[in-house]
Design a protein around this nucleic acid. Sequence first.
RNA 1: GGCCCCUUCGUCUAGCGGCCUAGGACACCGCCCUUUCAAGGCGGCGGCGCGGGUUCGAAUCCCGUAGGGGCUACCA
Length: 521
Amino acid sequence: MSIDTSKLDNGVRVRFPPSPTGDPHVGLIRSALFNYAFAKHYGGKLVLRIEDTDAARNTEESYQAILQTLRWMGLEWDEGPEVGGEHGPYRQSERGEIYQDMAARLRESGFAYPCYCTAEELEAARELARQEKRNPGYEGTCRNLTPEQIAAYEAEGRTHVLRFRLPDRQIAWNDLVRGEIAFEAENVPDYPLLRADGSPLYALTNPVDDALMGITHVLRGEDLLPSTPRQIPLHEALVELGVSKQVPEFGHLPFVMGEGNKKLSKRDPQASFSYYPRTGYLPEGVLNYLALLGWSLGNDEEIFGKQELVAGFDGTRINSSPARFDLKKCEAINAVHLRRLETEDLAKRILPFLDREGLLLGGEDGHLADEGEWRTLLAATPLVQERMTVLSEAVPMLGFLFTGDGTDRRHAFQVNEADAEKVLTADAWPALAAATAALSALGTEESPWTVQAIDDALRAALIEGLGLKPKNAFTPVRVAVTGRRVSPPLFESLELLGRDRALARLNAATTRARAAASTAS
RNA sequence: GGCCCCUUCGUCUAGCGGCCUAGGACACCGCCCUUUCAAGGCGGCGGCGCGGGUUCGAAUCCCGUAGGGGCUACCA
């Protein structure tokens, strides 16, 4: 099954209309993702439109964050800010004249009328209705004012909003996600399009822009569902006025929820989208996980990329029930994508995280100052690839390889104190001393400093020589050399670290263990 | 209060009248592998909100009911 787009002159046109207030929310980005996938599936266009008519709440940072996030996710828009298009401008704050013109036409043609009720009067009416358990919507007081009444109000100095006149009939549509939905006329009151000061409201700008921009399908959050029966008649009016060709189809996406039964709160750190790039999630992983919130491929395959999403996303199998955001699963899916990356690709992505923590010498324009650091990173990447879920985890795992001697910005090598306390004890002294001796012998022509030689030497010295269990034998060496009880594989780590640094660290650890031994005895 | 939406394992989901003694994934718990941690392999735990219908047969259709959520602005 699939959606019939054969009657669309210009193909599928969908839009993503964020309001630039605050950090982008994961639910918002999922909405962008679904719209993108829907558009691309049908070979259509995605329009990015900024709904910034509320000057008090909009910020430039939020606007920039939205563009940046969409690009990070690889959700390129076909029309919108910075890319242009024939229906611009794409920021509503720049479309004031259009809204005034539309409002005037709606009023002239009788689709809208001036309402002189004051906020106090309306509030009182609402309150009364609530008490009498009636529907608290606008009661149509000013629906049929005569020119004389209007003149009288004007003479009084009253101001008016422009109100849209709803038809007196049931309003129904076939929701892309939920099927038939119907609202009775008495539950869809007339609503304001312009404020008393003449400025346009969302109720006007959103449908007008959808009409003007030729939007064919509106996929938006479930929270907007109750506003759809208001918008459909407005769209019909705009069609009648020749502004647009058809009323768009609507589909209402389920919520993305957080803990408990509430929408993912802006207070949850992982609700802000910026959390993901910052923590080292991959765009591939986040895209994959977000797509699973309210949608699935329909088979048992949960790991997929953008191409597969687009290929499968025909808009017919979007779930109608809310989805809880599960960070654990998001991590797990991210980890799968991370393990699938080519070594060099992964290394390049790890680089900024090491740099950010001051583990690299630091170059200009994101280039490394030292080619050796890149070779080390390239060699170390396979060791940590299947041990990471997000890129930032590479920092503690690889830190022992990227240390300075105090003459540059890099941190000096440091053993984790808690781990040293537990492991570099009197008991560990013999193992450390034996390991140091065994490794000292390596690094020559006949016994090179290689993984295999290190492996052989340490096993001979510690397992066979001292009769230790592997775990007891290698853990002290691991802490001595990597600074932590948890590290990449030991022999590979030693090889990468190099003989000099490895022996220096072993000597230091041996000294420490010997001191512990003499204290103990 | 009114209107509207939603309801399959803890979570995300498959399921669209018989293939379901309900499948997969994450999480969790065992075991195996193992130089740590992971990864990987094997196994386990665990669900159709409830009540009526319709039908030879219902997770799937219908009607109730309960619970959850949204909206109810001269915000978007």
